[in-house]
Nucleic acid binder design. Structure first.
Lengths: 197, 197
DNA sequence: CTATTATATTACTCACCAGTAATATAGTAA
DNA sequence: TTACTATATTACTGGTGAGTAATATAATAG
């Protein structure tokens, strides 16, 4: 990588993908402003102007990572939390499956998750949208008679989002998402006081 | 504020305090790197070199704000959550009072809270310490027989921290901390399923 | 084989901003 | 007054880093 000119076997898509991956790692590690383009291109193994072949600016590549997170997150949410056709043994299992799906997504994509939920200026909006979808789902189940009609599901949904985000963005907790989901949902549904030994 | 030289009635402590307040506002609004010393001093109504009379660097003033948050937070936690001498009608009231105290602190100091829980590199450590203290408290109550002995209080404490942080750092939720605390603690103790109409 | 497009490099510029030098006035104690 | 300390200013410096100019080689289509 010393002489100018196109390299044999070079492929723009691969360079672009390597830049995206390197940027995700750097942003997640160091935050937006501490991340230098020079570090991204070094990690990706390309030169600085090559970066600008694929991305308009530092902001643009960050935005693309944020967009990717949002899209993947809501795809997961749609698939797991709101799927009415999946058969579950009980409501608890259904909710546990949904929570486990989101936990697993955060666990598998820790860098994107950190970018989307902590670093991005859109983090608040993403959390708000997540809360709304969860609230709608809980209210649907409420109308089906699973929960008492006088519970404020906005509070429940926001609490759930808080915990999801906490477990998804705290590195010391990013372990065994499925087990944690089951344990957490039991707590969430039954509370601290009404547990059966 | 145009000519050089000490101003009549000038007082270093006041200038220092104004710089701290301005810095808290700017950091909370724009994040660490987007915050310029020029913006801080403009808001504080002093010149740039005056800043360096009171703080060694940009990092130093940020650290001071983080330290202030940590100290105030754990003072509140000590006072409200862990106070064994305060008499409460029930355990639920005791916990609700503790949660309300923390909610109120976040509500009263939104800028410091955002700095300490979101912006600071120590945010993770602060949350971890908070979780540990809450866990210890819950385990004490568990040993007193309030909760079933087989509950994993680490999970409960982390969930609680997640919700606390979410409610404390999400602007749209920073309203009526006392009411929210009561509502949330009821959910936390009784769960979604075992509520009495 | 040539023209065009895609991919890449070295070497540079320009703005921005944290921090500093030099200097000046106010308060206070002898 | 004089000397000293505390508080303040205008005007500057120097490093850093995002983005660019100029250029060169590979792939491919006519």
């Amino acid at each position: 990588m010393a002489k100018p000119g196109r390299k044999p076997g070079s492929d723009g898509e691969k360079s672009r993908a390597r830049l995206l991956a390197a940027a995700a790692a750097e942003f997640a590690l160091s935050g937006y402003h501490e991340t230098k383009i020079s570090a991204i291109v070094k990690k990706a193994g390309v030169s600085q102007p090559a970066f600008y072949l694929y991305f308009e600016s530092k902001e643009a590549i960050f935005q693309e990572l944020t967009d990717a997170f949002r899209e993947q997150l809501f795809t997961h949410v749609q698939a797991s939390l709101l799927a009415p056709d999946i058969q579950h043994a009980s409501l608890a299992d259904a909710i546990a499956a949904g929570v486990a799906g989101i936990f697993s997504f955060f666990h598998e994509k820790p860098q994107l998750t950190h970018i989307g939920l902590c670093l991005s200026p859109e983090a608040e909006a993403i959390k708000e949208e997540l809360a709304k979808r969860i609230q709608l789902n809980l209210e649907k189940e409420q109308q089906m008679g699973y929960f008492s009609a006088d519970i404020d599901m906005s509070m429940a949904a926001e609490s759930l989002v808080g915990t999801l985000v906490h477990f998804g963005t705290t590195s010391r907790l990013q372990k065994e998402p499925a087990e944690r989901a089951k344990e957490f949902v039991q707590l969430f549904l039954n509370g601290l006081m009404n547990r059966e030994g």
